[in-house]
């Protein structure tokens, strides 16, 4: 199986990239690291004659801290994010996502924007972006817009992006004091794995009352897109931050928030059971971090 021929464009500015995308419309495919696009092309899952690479646009691979938020360029790679000091210090769950994706070689190429645009329900970075309440930055020749990551994914391989739009980056608010976040991915082996289930949790608590002020729980590989476990989140708001609560959250997430399917990587029943276990474990770990 050979990679089919295509025309490769490598614009150096976002403006040029947007113009190219407008010109070619749905016939052109955007590409960052290529770890999904090239594989899908080779396997004849997708077809295109034109690829617009975003890798030469310098500003897209920057990670910048400004005020109370961090802006991550769409082309920041997994390896780059894993090493970034601000990600390490303030966004530990996202760092684990990046540490766990694929293998060393893939992490040197794969980008956070690409991971989201590929929109696999099992994508590694997506639950972490969801629990940090990221905003997706989108541009077109008509202007800029932002959309909450919660509303960005529409189905397997489908996102909120219109044909002429480009995802340029993510804004992540700096997590408040007394908060923590944790990400766990579960697969059959320890590296180069496609998740059977992946879960991220964020938790903010009040040290005086020891109650949960706020939480965000994101579940991967159990629906057509990564999803928030809204019922579980609502249930534990204001409840004491302790093991029982985390267990209840897991049970609610398992029973009410997810509807996984059977596939050759795992059964629906197992996935559902693991949502319970991992939700509890990620909340527990988030709480320990928050203290």
């Amino acid at each position: 199986m050979l990679l089919p021929e295509f025309e490769l464009h490598e614009p150096v500015s976002i403006e040029d990239a947007l113009k190219l995308k407008k010109k070619h419309g749905k016939d052109a495919r955007l590409m960052a690291g290529g770890t999904d696009v090239l594989v899908l092309l080779k396997k004849k899952v997708i077809f295109t004659d034109t690829i617009i690479s975003l890798l030469q646009i310098k500003e897209l691979s920057q990670i910048k801290e400004s005020g109370n938020e961090v802006v991550i360029g769409a082309c920041a790679t997994m390896a780059q994010l894993s090493k970034s000091s601000v990600i390490k210090e303030k966004f530990g769950a996202l760092k684990s996502s990046c540490d766990n994706l694929g293998s060393h070689l893939i992490r040197n190429r794969a980008t956070i924007g690409g991971n989201c645009c590929n929109a696999s329900p099992a994508g590694d970075t997506m639950p972490s972006l969801m629990i940090y309440d990221a905003k997706v930055m989108i541009e077109s020749t008509d202007g800029k817009r932002e959309v909450s990551i919660k509303n960005f994914f529409k189905g397997p391989g489908v996102t909120d992006l219109a044909i002429h739009e480009i995802l340029t980056g993510f804004k992540l608010p700096i997590p408040p004091k007394n908060s923590g976040a944790h990400y766990i991915q579960l697969g059959k082996r320890r590296s180069s794995e496609i998740n059977v289930v992946n879960v991220g949790s964020f938790l903010e608590y009040d040290p005086d009352t020891k109650t949960i002020i706020n939480s965000r729980i994101a579940l991967g590989s159990v629906a057509a897109t990564p999803i928030r476990a809204q019922k579980a989140e609502e249930l534990i708001k204001g409840k004491p931050a302790k093991e029982d609560t985390f267990y209840t959250a897991g049970e609610t997430a398992r029973k009410e928030d997810c509807k996984p399917i059977d596939d050759f990587r795992g059964s629906a029943a197992y996935r559902q059971a693991m949502i319970g276990v991992l939700t509890k474990r990620t909340l527990q770990a988030s709480f320990e971090q928050a203290q």
């Binding site: 293998s103 059959k188 082996r189 320890r190 590296s191 180069s192 794995e193 496609i194 050759f264």
Partner: peptide, 16 residues
């Protein structure tokens, strides 16, 4: 064959 590549046919990696 559904898993006809070395991503989905899961050999032991150095990490395992």
């Amino acid at each position: 064959v559904l898993n006809n590549d070395l991503a989905e046919y899961k050999l032991v990696t150095a990490m395992d």
